[in-house]
């Protein structure tokens, strides 16, 4: 849980209302890995009050990135950050996406703001075969992020309005165009809950393992406050997204009670 002041290196719009913030990462802090997140203190007054959690979208050397959706006061403030600005960051936090089992084809599915951690994972998994398949969904073409994707990653896109790529949801794209039952496949998902659930349902139907990165309003982000709980199936009724997650096995999540 290192806590330090980073410097903004770049802050650019990568899709309509989606931004990528690049910032310095101190070398003696642990290197963030895909699935992990950081929290950012926005401003120094009581509004907004809590630190905001964001998944890493990249980390290399003394540099890390996150992709965020400009939708509220805090993210509007972040969108105004300029290179050189100081930001108060805490991280890396949470558990990472697990590696796919040997020989399994990782199929990565991102919707909306979920693109950050999925992109990070795609570029990390591109280092060795079998290379990942990356599916990115957005409402329309202008919501698809212009980001760096490793050439070995097989990228496909979907838009709800059909303005780019497959016309339909990213889960439809998965279901209709990929035969995930043909070989050894593992799913990795991040995005809105309905998308995660649809992905889970599909995976469960075919008996395919699926990993989901969950979201919940967070208090402390280090496991102390019990605020960011979600329902689990099984004996332990709740889990903290910040420390037991954000990545969960999809069959552990109680999708009826989100």
């Amino acid at each position: 849980m290192p806590l330090f002041t980073a410097r903004v290196l770049a802050n650019q719009e990568v899709a309509h209302d989606y931004y990528q913030l690049d910032f310095s990462w101190i070398s003696d802090a642990p290197r963030p890995v895909p699935g992990q997140f950081l929290t950012v203190r926005v401003g120094s007054s009581g509004v907004p009050l809590l630190r905001r959690p964001f998944a890493f979208s990249d980390a290399a050397g003394e540099r890390a990135s996150m992709i965020y959706w400009r939708r509220g006061d805090a993210t509007r403030a972040i969108a105004g950050y300029q290179p050189g600005d100081a930001i108060d960051v805490m991280g890396p936090l949470g558990v990472a996406f697990p590696e796919p089992t040997d020989g399994a084809v990782p199929v990565l599915i991102a919707g909306g703001v979920g693109v950050g951690p999925i992109l990070f994972l795609a570029n990390a998994l591109a280092a060795r075969a079998p290379y990942p398949i990356l599916l990115i969904g957005a409402r329309s073409a202008q919501g698809l992020p212009r980001v760096r994707v490793d050439g070995r990653v097989q990228l496909r896109t979907a838009t709800d309005d059909g303005s780019a790529g497959y016309a339909g949801t990213v889960i439809d794209l998965l279901d209709r165009t990929l035969d995930i039952t043909a070989g050894d496949v593992e799913l990795y998902l991040c995005g809105p809950n309905p998308m995660l659930r649809a992905g889970h349902d599909l995976a469960a139907r075919h008996g395919i393992p699926a990993w989901v990165s969950m979201e919940q309003t967070m208090g402390c982000a280090v496991g102390a406050c019990m605020g960011c709980a979600i329902h689990l199936t099984g004996v332990e009724r709740y889990a903290r997204v910040c420390t037991e997650g954000p990545v969960f096995r999809s069959t552990d999540v109680d999708w009826e009670r989100l």
Binding site: S45, L49, T217, M218, G219, C225, M226, A229
Partner: peptide, 23 residues
């Protein structure tokens, strides 16, 4: 105690409303 149903916290103007339930 498992604690209360979720969500358990919500930010308010200069405040934090919680219902953790003594988890």
């Amino acid at each position: 105690r498992p604690g209360n149903d979720v969500p358990r916290i919500v930010e308010t103007p200069a405040g934090l409303l919680n219902s953790i339930g003594l988890a």
